[in-house]
Every structure is written in structure tokens, then in C-alpha cells.
Design a protein around this nucleic acid. Structure first.
Lengths: 120, 120
DNA sequence: ATATCATATGAACAGATGTTCAAATGAAAG
DNA sequence: CTTTCATTTGAACATCTGTTCATATGATAT
């Protein structure tokens, strides 16, 4: 009844009201979905993917990563900051240099999933 | 020798030359890493994540999705185009309406991985 | 202290991205 | 054919994002 009335009100946009309310109940809350998108957004940049891939192999300092990727040390530092904020990498200081490494194995798994999807 | 010379040439940026060349060999090619980033970039938007999540439950037409997400039908259509191009969703026509659904189970797995990472 | 080196940071700029609006398909019904 | 409805499309616009450049930390060595 409600839905039928709305359908006649002018917009006339609702085709399957029952389906809509059913799906609506099973949706995670807005915030969770936002956080999820935000997580993937971090992986959605070549430079950051490369940095993470490099750290697959070994912990490494900023200038080494910059050299490896043929990029400015500043650019790398900015991106490491993003990765740090998302808890995807961690770091330790040793004198003047700072060594970065993967925060945990989730990074490997997620990137692995992506690779699998591509290779098909 | 080579590396030492370069270190003294001026920039003085290379700290661990051996590590660099070792890691360099194990890196996937540029294009693969770019595609990988591109794939994740698709997941890195709230609207697209929501659309995918909705399609977890059932195939659905454009105006239903728009209604469900409280968004313009045009905005949804634009995003479905992106998802279509990335082969993440497929569609079938039935008269005037077009029904979209997930292309395969990889989408579920990848989003599942992201969720797992968040819930820790 | 001063110099040097590794890294971080802030402002600025160019390029990418998402939504909106208006208009165009494309299929069914009158 | 014309109308209606679901969807697509293109241009315009505002916002976001990544890199660069110049400068600031912060630690070591002289």
C-alpha cells in the first residue's frame, strides 16, 4: 500500500519494493561500507602498490624505495605516510634512517586476491 | 664498485645497493602492477562498494539500486558503467529494464578479505 | 655549535574522479 | 507514429589526489 502510493506520487521509480526492503535489511551500516571503500582506495594507486610489493621482500628505508621505484624521496615519504595511517606498514628507526615493513599478512592476502582475479 | 661510484657522484642516495638489485628482480612488470592498482581503485569508492554489496543479495535493475542507495539513477548508471568495464558486474535485458548482477565470485572474496582486515 | 644526512612536512599545482543536469537511446504500449 | 518508461550518455562543475618544490625535523658526526 505504502509503496504503491509512492509509486503513483510522481517519480514512479520503484519497480521491486519488496526486494528493496529485503536487501535494505541485510546491508551493513554506512560507516562500515565507507571504511571498506577507504581501505581499497589505499591499494588503488600504482605507487602505493609498488611500495607494498617491495616490502613483500624485505624491510627497506625510504631512499632505497625511492631509488627502486625511480621516484622522489619526498613522493615516497608522502605515500608511506598514507600507508602508515592505514596501518598497512610499520616502521622502526635506526640512527638516521627509518626502516619500513608490512604491518601484517593481510596485505599479502588482499594483494594476492587481486592478482588472482587479474590472471583469469 | 659501480654503486660506490654512484654514491659519491653527488646524490648520495643509495644505502643498500645489493638489496635494491635483488628486490628489483622479483618485481612483477610495471603493467601488471598498474592493472592491480586499477582493480583496487574500482573498489575504492563508497557508491561502487554499495552497489556491489547490493548485488551480493540479488540481481537488480538500475532504478531499484538508485532507490536503495538514495541516489540519482544517473549516478548509479555511471558507476555501473565503470563496474561493467572492469568485468565486475554483468547484465541482462528484459523488456525496458536491465538487470545487473555480480560477474563472478571473486568480487565476494575480495570484499570479504577487506572486511576481515577491518574487523581486527 | 655546525654540518651533513635521512626523512618529514606544507603549500601549490595539475590531473583525475564523482555527481548533476540536460538530452539521447531503445524498447514496449497505445 | 507517438508516448512513455528505464536506462545511457556527454558536458560542466566542484572536489579529491598525487607529485613537486622548498623548507623543516631530528639524529649523528666533526
Amino acid at each position: 500500500m505504502d509503496e504503491q502510493e509512492r509509486m503513483e506520487q510522481g517519480t514512479g521509480e520503484i519497480l521491486h519494493p519488496d526486494l528493496i526492503s529485503s536487501v535494505n535489511q541485510d546491508m551493513p551500516d554506512e560507516e562500515m561500507l565507507y571504511d571498506l571503500a577507504e581501505l581499497f582506495r589505499i591499494f588503488g594507486d600504482s605507487t602505493r602498490i609498488k611500495i607494498l610489493y617491495v616490502l613483500f621482500e624485505a624491510e627497506m628505508c625510504v631512499c632505497d624505495i625511492a631509488e627502486l621505484l625511480h621516484m622522489t624521496q619526498s613522493a615516497i615519504s608522502h605515500q608511506l605516510r598514507v600507508l602508515k595511517q592505514s596501518k598497512l606498514v610499520k616502521f622502526r628507526r635506526e640512527g638516521k634512517t627509518i626502516y619500513y615493513s608490512l604491518a601484517d599478512d593481510h596485505v599479502r592476502t588482499i594483494i594476492g586476491m587481486g592478482m588472482e582475479h587479474l590472471c583469469e
